[in-house]
Design a protein around this nucleic acid. Structure first.
Ligand SMILES: [Mn+2]
Ligand SMILES: [Mn+2]
Ligand SMILES: [Mn+2]
Ligand SMILES: [Mn+2]
Lengths: 220, 220
DNA sequence: AATTAAATTTAGACAAATCTAAAAAATTAT
DNA sequence: ATAATTTTTTAGATTTGTCTAAATTTAATT
């Protein structure tokens, strides 16, 4: 029972939207997959028939346990390939996604398990996202705030604990948001302030007060 | 101007049949690709429209220069991936073909050139077949099969043209593999069978049928 | 509650790749 | 040179994934 690349992409996108927003809509999925709402509806029906999806028209949908299992396998492959590209083939972390979008559909299970081993059973990909293991279990990713981060390690903003308008305005002005990739370049013990670098932007400095509310993930 | 996986497989198969037999027929192609003659004809028309093929119905066909260029790129990718699987992921040489059949369709040129570099710009794949370089040039290697070898000259097994499971099993049993050093000690004109000596092993005899599928070179 | 707007689904069409069955052309045998 | 056989091509369907335009359902406004 093989799943087409296209179906795999749908399943994966549903999984991600489900994680982020809790609920997934036809339009959101169409936007994500760069396709039309009508095409999405067509595919939802097929995925329902194959039991990857629980779906009742006009009422919404979500992945079945089967679907979830497939999503995690695709995500595992995607992230292992991304790491391979960065670690072994000297790709930049910002250019690997597109290639991994293709590589994730290679079907050999042995290949991906050997790749995992070759990379030393890594816990997270170049963007700091966790890599599900062979059985689909996802390692809990440890978050830390920017005053705790090691220097010069790529990290991704994963959580902002103070979500007051004032804080969000400040972060927005500095170019920091959820998902922003950032590296801590310097830390000043005097006041816990940190100097950050975001790609394509000049270096910025934020106070320790701000830094301790911005959580990031990384690893490996 | 992207070419579908299916078209790439057709182009590659035409290239191989062209090399082996000089001429390619609709039926031979159908057999090779495990499909039907009618499907082949359909595809030939499409490949002609895209100028990858010179084709006149009932008169036969052959790759255009453009088609040949694409074939060599696919073959390059196929063989580099095979070597990667064997050298880096500890796959056996007999199990890589199937996986490479998928990997060869990954489109990133940068990926394949980096892989080439990572593997040290190898000249041949795990089966001893030459790997075209980035520009499509194929390293020439003067090979001869064991029925043509002069007697008592050290040589190295460089290629095995029949890669069926049965053949590989036989060779494995006799102690013959890629890279094995051998000398032809006697040749029997009656049936083209040859007697071989491999270092540290008793002399062995193989039939002319087997011998003509085992190719050797002098250097490396 | 009625109207308007937005989201979702259906109807009908299309391109790609494949198939079966039948027709046409080329080969081989008589 | 005719007839029989093989090879190749066409005709017509099917499957998968996509699209546009129109219809339907749900949600938001007045
Ligand atoms: Mn993908
Ligand atoms: Mn990633
Ligand atoms: Mn292939
Ligand atoms: Mn090979």
């Amino acid at each position: 029972m093989k799943v087409s690349s296209s179906k795999e992409d749908y399943i994966k996108a549903i999984f991600h939207l489900q994680e982020e927003d809790g609920i997934v809509t036809t339009n959101a999925l169409a936007r994500q997959l760069d396709t039309k709402a009508a095409s999405v509806t067509d595919m939802l029906k097929k995925l329902k028939t194959q039991k990857f999806l629980l779906y009742e028209k006009y009422k919404g949908f979500r992945l079945s346990p089967e679907g979830r299992k497939i999503a995690l396998q695709i995500i595992r492959k995607h992230r292992l390939w991304e790491l391979f590209l960065v670690k072994k083939l000297r790709f930049g972390w910002e250019e690997v996604h597109e290639v991994a979008e293709e590589l994730e559909h290679i079907s050999s299970k042995k290949l991906i398990d050997r790749l995992d081993e070759y990379l030393g059973f890594p816990k997270s990909d170049p963007h700091g996202d966790p890599i599900p293991d062979s059985s689909g279990k996802v390692p809990v990713k440890k978050q830390m705030n920017l005053t705790e981060m090691k220097l010069n390690i790529p990290a991704v903003v994963s959580n902002i604990s103070d979500q007051s308008t004032e804080m969000l305005e400040l972060l927005s002005d500095k170019g920091l948001a959820l998902g922003t990739k950032v590296e801590v370049k310097k830390r000043f013990a005097f006041d816990n302030s940190v100097e950050l670098k975001i790609k394509n932007l000049p270096a910025i400095t934020i106070s320790g007060n701000v830094a301790k509310n911005v959580f990031v993930t990384h690893e490996e």
